[in-house]
Computed example of a mutant assay.
Amino acid sequence: MLLFCPGGESMGRKRAVLFDLGATLVTGPSSAPAAQVARMLDLPAGEERRVAEVLLCRNYPGPAEVCCALAGLVPGGQVREEEVCRLWVEQESAAVEIPGATEAVVRAKELGYAVGLVSDIWAPYYRAFLHACPEIASRVDFAALSFRVGKRKPAPQIFLAALEGLGVDSCHAIMVGDTYDRDILPAKKLGLRTIWVLCRPEREYRAAAAVLMENWPRPDRIVAHIGEVPGALAELTW
Rank of each mutant, 00 (worst) to 15 (best):
D120P: 07
D120M: 06
I121F: 07
I121D: 05
W122A: 05
W122P: 05
A123M: 05
P124M: 03
Y125L: 14
Y125I: 13
R127H: 08
A128K: 02
A128Q: 03
A128D: 01
F129I: 11
L130V: 10
H131G: 00
A132W: 11
A132R: 06
P134E: 07
A137F: 01
S138I: 03
R139L: 15
D141E: 15
D141F: 15
D141Q: 14
D141K: 13
F142E: 13
F142P: 09
A143Q: 13
A143H: 09
A144L: 12
A144S: 15
L145C: 09
L145M: 11
F147S: 00
R148F: 00
V149H: 10
G150L: 11
K151A: 14
K151I: 02
K151D: 10
R152T: 04
R152S: 11
K153Y: 11
P154Q: 12
A155M: 10
A155H: 13
Q157D: 15
I158P: 04
I158Y: 02
I158T: 05
F159A: 02
F159K: 01
F159S: 03
L160I: 15
A161V: 07
A162P: 01
L163I: 04
L163G: 03
L163A: 07
L163N: 00
E164I: 12
E164F: 14
E164S: 13
G165Y: 11
G165L: 14
L166F: 14
L166D: 02
L166S: 04
G167T: 14
V168L: 11
D169Q: 12
S170V: 01
C171I: 10
C171W: 01
A173C: 08
M175Q: 07
M175K: 03
V176D: 04
V176K: 00
V176A: 02
V176P: 01
D178Y: 04
T179K: 09
T179D: 11
Y180Q: 01
Y180R: 05
D181E: 11
D181M: 12
